[in-house]
Structure formats: structure tokens, C-alpha cells
Computed example of a mutant assay.
Amino acid sequence: MTRVRSDDYESKSQAIMDCAAALFAKEGYPAAKMQDVAKACGATKSMLYHYFPAKDDLLFAMLQEHLQRLIAALEEALTGKGKPGERMQRLVQAYMQKSVQSRRRHMVAMSDVKFLPKAKQAPLITLQRQLAELIAGLLRELNPHLSDALYKPYTMMLVGMLNWTDFWYSSSGAVKPQELCDRMARLFLNGFLAEKG
């Protein structure tokens, strides 16, 4: 029996997740079948099951990897030098870059996690909370005089703005990616800094 080298295994599992993300985004997770994923990947069902024993395993791996990469990008953006406002700019840019790099996975993450069994949802929810805590920590630095109860709603407002951009924004339009990031950061930052309470 030939063993698959780990780098081959990694690249093949990535290719499968990319194909599946495109299919799930187009057809919807509930409608897509593993045989559809195999066909989209140009693979056999048995080869697909070698990497992902069930459709839930495939979705879970895809979403877990997407969230882990997004968290790593935000941590890097936030640990660099600079004032909190500069780090907000870097955070928005890092979030948008990671979303663009895995646009279909991001869209699937937004809509399909609810289809996973609760046991598989739990680690993803933990990662989502970790991501939210990173952003909330920066917001506390930016405006430390707000009531503690307000940081979560503001965090979710910012995350909502960043997440939904994938559904309407086109880089070929009048507003280029860097300008969009600049405008989003300024819009949120200027409004947030003016808030009291």
C-alpha cells in the first residue's frame, strides 16, 4: 500500500475543501451530496471518504481552518506596534484579506455552521468567541470609558460589517480594496470614538 506523503495529504485535503466550499456556496450545504463534491473535485467517492469520512467532517474542517487562519491574521495585526487606531486599520485590512483569500469558505462559514451537530458546532463557537474577544479587546483600548456591556454589541456590529462585505463587494468596482478598508475603518472608528456611556 502506498502511503500519501503529508504534504500531498495536506494539498489534496485543501483542494477538496476548496471544491466543497464552492459547491456549498452555490448549491447550499443541505442539498450538496458527497458524490457531488467528489464530482466537482474530479475524485472518486472512496478517495473523498479517505480524507473526510462524512460531509459533516468536511464542513467542520473547512470552517475550523478558516476561523483559525482568520484569528492568526488578526493576532498578527493587533500585536504590531502603533496606536489603537492604527491597529484598527490593520485589523480591518487583515480581516478583509483573509475573507477575500477564502471568499467561498467565508460565505459557507456565515451560513452553514448551523447544519452541523451541536458537538461539532461547539469548537467552532469557541473559535468565534476567541475572534470576538480579540476585537473587543481593541475596542476597549480605543474607548475605555464605555459600560462593559456595550463592547460585545459594538464588536458584533463591526464583525457584521466585515462579514457581509463578501456578499456585495466587487474589487472590480469603483472602490478598490485598500480604499474600502480605509473607509470602513474610519467609518467605524470615528463613530465608535464618539460614543459615550
Rank of each mutant, 00 (worst) to 15 (best):
K39G: 04
K39Y: 09
K39A: 15
A40D: 03
G42Y: 07
A43P: 01
A43K: 14
M47I: 12
Y49I: 13
H50R: 13
K55W: 02
K55N: 03
D56Y: 09
D57C: 07
L58N: 00
M62E: 03
M62A: 09
Q64C: 09
E65T: 11
H66Q: 14
H66K: 13
I71N: 03
A72D: 12
L74M: 14
E76G: 10
K81G: 12
G82I: 04
G82K: 05
K83W: 05
P84G: 02
G85P: 07
R90L: 08
L91W: 03
V92E: 00
Q93A: 15
Y95S: 09
M96W: 06
Q97L: 15
K98L: 11
S99W: 07
V100W: 11
Q101T: 08
R103F: 04
R103E: 08
R104P: 01
R104H: 10
R105M: 12
V108W: 00
A109P: 04
A109V: 05
A109T: 10
M110Y: 08
V113C: 14
F115Q: 06
L116S: 09
L116C: 03
K118I: 14
K118C: 09
K120M: 14
Q121F: 05
P123G: 02
P123A: 02
Q128R: 14
Q130T: 13
Q130C: 07
A132T: 09
A132I: 04
A132F: 06
E133G: 09
A136C: 06
A136H: 05
L138V: 04
L139V: 00
L139S: 00
H145L: 11
H145Q: 10
S147N: 13
Y151V: 02
K152S: 13
T155F: 02
V159D: 10
L162C: 00
N163F: 05
N163Y: 08
S171D: 14
